[in-house]
């Protein structure tokens, strides 16, 4: 079938090509509009995440720690006890926040900020770091902010905290999946 326009004729194939081109153009324009103006800070934010991915365990101990398995078995009782340590004598909530989002009342004292266990920015920290690494950091501290808990909490209590931190990660993953915001 041919369409005529001031002496010009357009074939069916040409119509399809025109429609596809229009569709792509409209789609691209909308996606640029929907994403809004580019925030110059976005790039910096991405760069700031490097400290999240970076291993805190010294390189000579890293492989040993990565091999460690949590000797404490997760169950309801352990989780309840670990939560009590997190919000009590472990004082974890002060920096890492009640929900593990790294937003506790003392969080703004630290640079880099306290670890976000909830992984609200979906950086993938929970996947990258092993139980043994988390246990090592709780035991020995990290940098100027995180104190060592070797003398304040027993081995079992520190391993329980690892379980609790993993639980926070699970709720994060569920929430992100529900909201359909998961990037990776």
């Amino acid at each position: 079938m041919l369409l005529q326009f001031r002496g010009l004729t357009i074939s069916t194939i040409e119509k399809i090509a025109l429609s596809v081109t229009l569709f792509i153009f409209i789609g691209f324009t909308y996606s640029v509009y929907a994403s809004g103006p580019q925030d110059p800070a976005d790039k910096d934010e991405e760069e700031d995440h490097s400290h999240v991915i970076e291993a805190k365990v010294p390189s000579d101990k890293l492989s040993e720690m990565r091999r460690l398995k949590n000797p404490v078995v997760a169950n309801k009782k352990v989780l309840e006890e670990a939560k009590a340590i997190y919000t009590g004598k472990g004082t974890c909530f002060n920096c890492h926040g009640d929900k593990g989002k790294g937003d506790g009342p003392l969080a703004e004292s630290f640079n880099p900020p306290p670890r976000d266990f909830y992984d609200k920015d979906d950086i993938g920290w929970q996947k990258i770091r092993t139980d043994g690494e988390i246990f090592w950091v709780i035991t020995n501290g990290a940098g100027a902010g995180m104190p060592p808990f070797a003398d304040m909490l027993s081995d079992e209590e520190r391993w329980s905290l690892v379980i609790y931190i993993r639980e926070i990660g699970k709720s994060s993953a569920t929430d992100l999946a529900t909201k359909g915001k998961k990037k990776h």
Partner: peptide, 9 residues
């Protein structure tokens, strides 16, 4: 003397 709440060193 790093002491957790309720602790003693």
């Amino acid at each position: 003397t790093q002491t957790s709440p309720g602790g003693k060193t």
